[in-house]
């Protein structure tokens, strides 16, 4: 802009040749753009002749369409309705499960609250010594009350944890089992003590405990509100997370798209926001194929 203004002032004062100016302008379209913007300012100032001697009137501020701004800022809709809360009487060993896309909560006899995410199956037993919960597949959130009757034992992926009062998230992955301490303490039989913000990953016989990153913690809290959180993961990962909730899966038809990385917050019940955002930002097209799957192709 300074350079363009320099040329305009020089032309105005007659201190450069039009040929030199034309050469500069033709060298780069950005030069031409900067020059018209400066030229416009030059022209506009002249309009002040009309108002120079009059006291100025304040101009009303333009109305901002706040609703539209909010909508632009927040793509994900409201949380979907949480599953029904069920009180279940403990017998020898009880089971509960959710279908794909379903979410529900239950409360054990000792007051422990368990929320089951999509495609999850658990069993449990409660007696005088406390409760024992098995995560067979899927993902659960546990809220353990300050326990008069002892601690809660959680078993999954061949590992066993002892949970104190607090909130936890347990997820069975294809290759591993993850336990996250959102709040409180837990003891791993092989990995030692875990405190708030720690995550244990169990792969086979090994248990690795380390601090969880922010997005992992956010994700563990958000699914209960029906939201998925991403922070720079690849489209492959994003689609896999969505597919956990979908009967009709999303398929990336164009391998080049897998490298795209993205962040944001979406509702789990409806992939429409994701598909819209993918179209708006990358021109990616989505199509429903004959078998119901949604295929993504470069636009």
């Amino acid at each position: 802009m300074e350079e363009a203004a320099g040329w305009l002032a020089a032309l105005d004062a007659g201190s450069v040749t039009p040929q030199a100016f034309e050469q500069w302008r033709a060298a780069d379209p950005r030069h031409a753009v900067a020059f018209v913007q400066v030229a416009q300012a030059f022209e506009q100032v002249e309009r002040l002749r009309a108002v120079e001697d009059r006291p100025a009137e304040p101009v009303p501020a333009p109305a901002i369409n706040r609703r539209r701004m909010l909508r632009a800022g927040v793509l994900a809709g409201g949380a979907s309705v949480a599953g029904a809360l069920l009180a279940v009487r403990a017998t020898a060993r009880d089971h509960a499960e959710t279908a794909v896309g379903e979410r529900r909560g239950l409360v054990l006899d000792d007051g422990t609250r368990i929320e089951l995410n999509t495609g999850t199956r658990i069993s449990w037993r409660t007696d005088e010594k406390g409760s024992r919960v098995w995560l067979e597949q899927g993902e659960i959130g546990l809220t353990v009350p300050a326990a008069p009757r002892g601690r809660l034992e959680l078993e999954a992926g061949g590992a066993r944890f002892s949970l104190g009062a607090g909130r936890f998230n347990a997820r069975q992955q294809p290759e591993s089992f993850d336990l996250l301490v959102l709040d409180g303490v837990a003891d791993s039989v092989r990995g030692g003590r875990m405190e708030t913000g720690a995550m244990a990953r169990v792969i086979g016989q090994s248990v690795a405990v380390r601090p969880a990153d922010m997005v992992t913690l956010d994700r563990a809290r958000s699914w209960k509100d029906g939201q998925l959180v991403f922070e720079g993961e690849s489209l492959d990962f994003v689609v896999a997370e969505f597919n956990r909730y979908l009967d009709r899966k999303i398929v990336i038809a164009d391998p080049a798209l897998s490298r795209i990385r993205l962040g944001g917050r979406f509702t789990t019940t409806d992939p429409a926001d994701l598909l819209t955002a993918l179209h708006a930002s990358f021109g990616i097209r989505s199509q429903r194929s004959a078998n119901g799957a949604i295929t993504l192709t470069a636009g």
Partner: peptide, 25 residues
Amino acid sequence: LAHERHRRATVVRFEHLADMEAMEI
């Protein structure tokens, strides 16, 4: 141009994006 930039970018945050309806407006 934004599509081109997004395809090149390492991470794209959807907070910056509006739905298509807003675009059409």
